[in-house]
Design a protein around this nucleic acid. Structure first.
Lengths: 234, 234
DNA sequence: TTTATTAAATGAACAGTGTAAATTTACGTT
DNA sequence: AACGTAAATTTACACTGTTCATTTAATAAA
């Protein structure tokens, strides 16, 4: 066997294709994403793309993969700002802020992985699960550590939380912890944060200047007060 | 002027087209929606549709319109169950439950109006705003009446709410009330409810049986406790 | 150096799509 | 009966993703 022929002038075609795809998404909205269009700007034949991506869906999956990585790294970076175990509260707040920041910085990435969109895309998900875990597990680790530190509030409303035993792969892929409280609170936090950010991104929130930012901060503060014991044992 | 020719056998073509569109959406996912496909099942020429809808987008707008009406009616019906002014709390809870029920009953309608999807659809929104108002204003009216009854909590976290003066059309279209607290709390509630329902609908919540329903109920209870004074003046 | 192997790129073609234009059909009014 | 006109159709265009047969070109073997 022999013959890794290296392509003509474009050094890293896979990346070039993805870049062109993102550029196209940024311009023509989230759904255009024409393989022919990509090939056109790359001065490449359209079927040539099929040497690097099996499918249009495969290309989209690759974009989602990168988006998940970007999201995960952003979350981890925010978490790393308060790595000390005495800054669990600040850490949680930081990833909350980072969630919105990332969404506003890369709205197309956010829509791609957290919105429902994309034409006839049928997700494989299997290949994406590991990178999806990266970002979401950041929140769950945070909550998990708060729980371990005894800083997690367990109000009456949460005592009805069902056991998570018998959970198949989906949740285990998110986190190793199978604690019902940690999982439940994490999902609650995630859904709140996701709800407001997606509403803002779709322009459904009042366009008053600074309004979404303030509302989001209020929601974060409410989350903290509701789920976290500010002064542990005192 | 003269000549309302009535079409051959199909009595109400506009509705028939929309029905076929919904059917197609239900089957082939949210994005297929092929005009030619619709024409095919209706045994009609594809361009014939253009006599009833200017555009593919116009058809989608019509579907969104109907979806908004359906949503609004569902919300109003839930509200009407507790029309007595002494049941403001039950009323709020009812529309909260109804929100999720409607989304689960008509996931495609929900995705169409609350998700970002649909191919190259560029929303006019202007024509849709009145029907959009129907559903959302239900929540805002609920919160407004709670406020009027002195049952609305105004915690410290909410005092920073900015004035809503200077708001252009978007918000005013939602509700006549320009009260900052009512608007803010309504948006908070909406974003929480929307966040969890959309996560559930996209299958991002743990698939544990009954988990989403329980989590949703917990969130509703939290919303009540957080924003509403259970026993007004006592 | 020649030859064979083989990945990569191509052009042509197929089955789709939304939409515009010209044309035919069929009804309601004069 | 004949006209005016809305509705439907046929045709056509430009676009899409994808497949196939073919050519190009670089490497490995002879």
């Amino acid at each position: 066997m022999a013959r890794p022929v290296k392509s003509r002038q474009i050094p890293n075609i896979q990346e070039a294709i993805k870049d062109a795809a993102w550029k196209q998404i940024a311009e023509s909205g989230a759904v255009s994403l024409s393989l022919r269009g990509i090939a056109r700007v790359l001065k490449i034949s359209a079927p040539a793309i099929y040497n690097y991506f099996i499918d249009r869906d495969a290309l989209i999956s690759a974009l989602m993969y990168d988006a998940y990585v970007s999201f995960g790294e952003f979350q981890r970076a925010a978490m790393a700002q308060y790595s000390d175990s005495g800054q669990l509260l600040e850490r949680l707040f930081a990833i909350g802020v980072a969630y919105r920041e990332w969404a506003l910085k890369y709205p197309n990435r956010y829509r791609l992985i957290f919105g429902s969109l994309v034409p006839g895309y049928r997700t494989s998900e299997d290949g994406l699960l590991p990178v999806m875990k990266l970002g979401i597990s950041a929140l769950m680790e945070c909550v998990g550590e708060l729980h371990a530190a005894g800083m997690l509030r367990s109000p009456d409303t949460l005592t009805g939380m069902p056991e998570l035993t018998g959970f198949p792969g989906c949740l285990d892929a998110f986190t190793g912890s199978a604690d019902a409280l940690v999982t439940g609170i994490s999902m609650l936090i995630w859904s709140r944060v996701h709800g407001m950010v997606s509403l803002e991104l779709e322009g459904k929130l009042p366009p008053y200047e600074g309004y979404p930012a303030l509302l989001y901060q209020l929601e974060l503060e409410m989350i903290m007060r509701q789920f976290v014991i500010l002064q542990p044992d005192k």
